[in-house]
Design a protein around this nucleic acid. Structure first.
Length: 990
DNA sequence: TGTCGTCAGTAG
DNA sequence: CATCGCTACTGACGACA
């Protein structure tokens, strides 16, 4: 047994954490006197302890005088840093500064040290001096406090998006990046040691040239890159991409295999009528069966000549491909899975790289599983293609431990022999009293062996293991434990009071660590779990130069997701788009060919009222979601689509499947799955089922000839999205939105009140009915000539680069729309009216927007009609959409009404009001709306002046007020709409 | 207090 | 030439009602 509770002060980092910890409001039972005698009392006064710690630091460097470089500085460290938080603490204190452990005291903190910040922290710390750790180390080297500006992590606004990428600066940034936090990287599980090679390597001479030009856009860069047809073929622009990519991606295969196997064995369990006997948790025998370096072993079957040579599996033997598996000879050289080939070859120059054989893996795997099925275990759980758990308690357990030892060894031996017979590959078997123990035992079993962890050995065995060997503990948590507590071994976990541990790694992780450190594991083999998400993503070969390319690829990815859902007979109502964006300081091309390099991840999701698996629904939603992210298309390095809130397709199970490309046989699998899933769903997801049953029926259910449609019908879908949907669905949505009790006061409610308007005034709904894909050429040309008046911005408007979302969903409407494209169309006349600061802001937005437009390929101007419909719709009112026609219309309306001595008809006013509102928000033409309001005002005054001249002045005054009210209402609508887009103080002076 | 959206981490 | 950096799940945390 490891010492459970050594004196805390033996470990300075722990002492620091303890000192930070507040013991208020915690159940004292966890560390009552008997367990952690004196802790609470000893650390009652945190400040004293901190001072003690700092004194301790100063004294430990006996006598050496150090300049008080950081005098007056109060320094706080955020996230992982190199040097670590502990070392920085020491340095700051040694050189005269004060170290602040507390986040909540950041108001008094003078500097925050961080290698990099998550996007959230970037915002949170925007007002603080956030500096790289080098500020500390270099200041000490220089012997004086260096200006913090030179080390800032957050660049001042204005230059955030585009930094000059001249070679010298780039080089420096790469240096910094190598030390940056893994939390910022796409693959945090990769060690920093490996990632440091993820720096730009050889690029084509052409690209090298372009990189020397400052201010080159990522879109231009991509255009240049894609000129090479071979490169183009490897990217997502190739229509064949998904097929070839997924065919060759090891990680894709691993994930798919895992999911399929899991499903298969869960079905088998639920299909078997005999429920396995429930056993107490202390009388179980679990086997963990695992192929030894699976891929490598398979490769060697056909190539026995390499059996005694170091080999590995990867795509091509070149520098930046990843080692996916390697044999034990290669491991002796230090080669590891996931390592880049270049590094592996450095470690082992003789290393031979062999190709993948995905089909062979499946075959060998199924042999192993057939052996395991024949064992007659109580339960079986597929962990992955090469790894499984079986619960053999019925076969092996006995009150006598020696008997368990004997029985389990015989069984393990026979499993290993049978699998080897069938596959010529070795499996190792780990045996233990729970999953944790079995998996750990496998480490001792390998290679080609078996090992059982006896109950009396378990603690001793576990306590010397690196914490990362525990399930669920990876690179990140491991690093935190090392940084914060200086802990690397599992046994040391128990030296930390649980609440303090939890304050660092989180509550659940803390619990898990504690029970694992005691050798306990509550999980059971073959636990049934319902699939909660289906997703498809690509983070390699993603290079876009235009928005059209992104849309097309999102379409393909939506198709992929749709067909995966269909194969599972699933539909879902929540779609999440995930985007990897090239990190601020990352080079335009990472070291890995077409890799994503260092990225920031963003996601946006949308929940509809009823589930779907329709590819065009998914595609439209995805495109719309991307609009919310405002990411320059050239910086997109990864795209993912995920469907959640899943429900199984009821009834005609086969029908949905046949709508999509389906592998032969998968229908059968899916159908078998169905009952299991539905049963499970009804147990687990009552509320989810409600979603479907409560949705509006879109097609008369009495019409039995039609299939029940699974349309995706968001209740609060934006008009943007609505317009993109097929006409039939649009109508159904409008119907489902039919008015309940609409208050005259509630403008928004009136906007929802569509269906009545359809009947009364057909024209107002014209924008909904317009097939968004088809705008007539005539109309497009007229629009073009109109747009040209905006001057040199017209090209950018039409070629598109930045996504936009004109309207947002309720609850997601933030104070200011971050879309800055609106700035382009603010009328110069209006601009003059605005206060100076707002004018500046608009100019800045214009600059920013234009800067972020990817230039279309020279000589390949996208088709105008196509480009326009991607921009925004031209809304029609009573059949008119051109400003002059509309003026005529309004003129006639006013003249006719006033000729009859009438005030306005309020229905007409509301229609116009709504139209103008949407001209601003959806058509994104503030100028047009303002001009129309001015026109109405002008007409009102003019017409009424004329009437005044002839008729009863008293009558006319009442009517006059009514009409002036109309002007007021319209002005308000336009102002409100403009504010929604972040434009204030609109002037309506005629 | 519960629910939702987003982000991060993990395994194989 | 290169290269094929996926996917399902859990958990934390802040915003919101």
């Amino acid at each position: 047994m490891p010492p459970r509770h050594p004196p805390p002060l033996a470990n300075p980092k722990l002492a620091a954490e303890l000192a930070k910890h507040t013991f208020d409001n915690e159940d004292g039972a966890e560390y009552a006197g008997s367990e952690f005698g004196g802790f609470g009392e000893y650390f009652r006064n945190k400040k004293i302890k901190l001072q003690n710690l700092d004194t301790h630091i100063r004294e430990s460097n006996n006598g050496i005088e150090r300049p008080p470089i950081f005098k007056g500085c109060i320094v706080h460290v955020n996230g992982y840093t190199k040097p670590s938080i502990g070392e920085l603490h020491k340095l700051v204190v040694l050189y005269g500064g004060v170290f602040s452990q507390y986040m909540d005291s950041k108001t008094t903190v003078t500097h925050i040290i961080a290698s990099s910040l998550t996007p959230k922290k970037l915002v949170e710390f925007a007002r603080y001096r956030v500096v790289k750790p080098e500020w500390i180390t270099q200041s000490i080297e220089a012997g004086k406090l260096l200006p913090w500006h030179d080390f800032r992590v957050i660049q001042p606004t204005g230059s955030q998006r585009r930094l000059p990428v001249g070679p010298a600066i780039n080089e420096q940034k790469n240096d910094l990046r190598q030390q940056s936090s893994p939390s910022h990287s796409v693959s945090p599980s990769k060690s920093a040691r490996q990632r440091e090679f993820d720096t730009p390597s050889t690029v084509s001479p052409h690209l090298t040239m372009t990189r020397k030009v400052s201010e080159i856009s990522s879109e231009d860069h991509n255009s240049a890159l894609l000129v090479n047809p071979n490169t183009w073929k490897s990217t997502v622009l190739n229509p064949e991409f998904l097929k070839t990519y997924y065919g060759q991606s090891r990680l894709h295969h691993l994930s798919m295999w895992k999911a399929n196997l899991k499903l298969k064995f869960q079905n088998q369990i639920s299909a078997s009528c005999r429920p396995p006997p429930k056993r107490p948790s202390d009388s179980r025998v679990i086997f963990h069966v695992d192929f030894d370096c699976f891929f490598a072993s398979i490769a060697l079957r056909k190539r026995p000549q390499y059996a005694d040579k170091p080999i590995c599996i990867g795509h091509g033997g070149n520098q930046n491909s990843e080692v996916s598996s390697c044999n034990y000879i290669a491991r002796d050289f230090g080669v590891r899975n996931g390592m880049w080939m270049r590094r592996a070859k450095e470690l082992c120059p003789e290393l031979i790289c062999l190709p993948y054989e995905f089909d062979a893996y499946e075959e060998a795997s199924s042999c192993m599983y057939s052996v395991l099925i024949d064992v007659g275990a109580d339960k079986i759980e597929a962990v992955s293609i090469d790894e499984a758990l079986i619960d053999v308690s019925s076969l092996c357990w006995s009150p006598n431990d020696d008997e368990i030892q004997m029985k389990s060894h015989d069984l393990a031996k026979s499993i290993r022999n049978k699998v080897f017979e069938l596959t010529q590959c070795h499996v190792s078997v780990g045996i233990g009293g729970n999953i944790l123990q079995a998996k750990l035992a496998t480490k001792w079993a390998k290679p080609a062996g078996q090992h059982r962890v006896r109950p009396n050995e378990i603690m001793q065995l576990i306590h010397g293991l690196p914490v990362e060997d525990l399930p669920g503990i990876g690179y990140s948590i491991g690093a935190q434990l090392k940084d914060r507590f200086d802990i690397e071994k599992t046994g040391d976990i128990l030296t930390i009071p649980k609440p303090i541990l939890q304050s660092v790694v989180g509550g659940k992780n803390g619990d898990k660590l504690y029970s694992y450190a005691h050798g306990e594991d509550a999980r059971e083999v073959g636990e049934i779990s319902v699939r909660k998400s289906v997703s498809a993503e690509v983070n390699w070969g993603v290079r876009f130069a235009t928005k059209e390319q992104v849309d097309t690829f999102l379409g393909s990815l939506a198709g992929e997701l749709s067909s995966r859902l269909a194969n599972l007979n699933m539909i879902g109502s929540n779609i999440t788009l995930k985007i990897y964006r090239r990190a601020e300081n990352a080079p335009l091309e990472p070291a890995k060919y077409l890799g994503c390099g260092e990225c920031d991840a963003f996601s946006r999701s949308y929940t509809g009222a009823s589930p779907t698996c329709d590819p065009s629904d998914i595609s439209r939603i995805a495109i719309w979601l991307l609009g919310k992210l405002q990411i320059p298309v050239g910086d997109i390095r990864g795209v993912g689509l995920q469907m959640t809130k899943l429900v199984p397709v009821h009834g005609e199970a086969g029908r949905q499947v046949t709508l999509f490309q389906t592998k032969s046989g998968s229908t059968e699998v899916a159908t078998r799955t169905l009952e299991t899933l539905e049963t499970k769903f009804e147990e687990d997801h009552h509320s989810n089922l409600d979603v479907r049953t409560s949705a509006e029926p879109f097609i008369d259910s009495k019409d039995a000839s039609k299939p029940v449609p699974q349309y995706f019908v968001p209740t609060e879908i934006s008009e943007d999205v609505l317009r993109e949907l097929p006409l039939s669905i649009q109508k159904e949505i409008l119907w489902s939105r039919r008015p309940k009790a609409s208050s005259d006061q509630d403008f928004v409610a009136k906007l929802q009140d569509e269906s009545q308007r359809i009947q009364q005034y057909g024209d107002i709904t014209a924008p909904f009915r317009r097939p968004a894909k088809r705008i007539g050429d005539q109309e497009a040309n007229r629009l073009k000539s109109k747009r040209t008046k905006l001057g040199n911005s017209s090209k950018n408007l039409n070629t598109i680069g930045c996504y936009r979302s004109a309207s947002k969903l309720p609850n997601q409407e933030n104070s200011i729309n971050t879309d800055n494209s609106w700035a382009l169309e603010v009328d110069e006349g209006i601009l003059k009216e605005l206060p100076q600061d707002i004018r500046d802001e608009i100019h800045e937005e214009r600059r920013h927007y234009l800067l972020n437009q990817p230039a279309g390929k020279a000589g390949e101007e996208p088709e105008l009609s196509n480009a326009i419909q991607l921009q925004h719709p031209i809304l029609t009112f009573q059949g008119k959409n051109q400003i002059d026609d509309l003026r005529d219309l309004l003129h006639d309306w006013l003249s006719a009404s006033s000729a009859e001595m009438q005030g306005p008809h309020m229905d007409d006013v509301h229609l116009l009001e709504k139209y103008l509102y949407r001209v601003v928000t959806d058509e994104v033409n503030l100028n047009k709306a303002v001009e129309l309001v001015k026109w109405v005002e002008f007409q009102v005054e003019k017409v009424l002046r004329e009437r005044n001249f002839h008729d009863n002045p008293v009558m006319n005054q009442e009517v006059l007020f009514e009409w002036l009210d109309v002007v007021d209402i319209l002005q308000k609508a336009v102002s409100t709409a403009a504010e929604k887009r972040g434009i204030y103080n609109i002037q309506f002076c005629c």
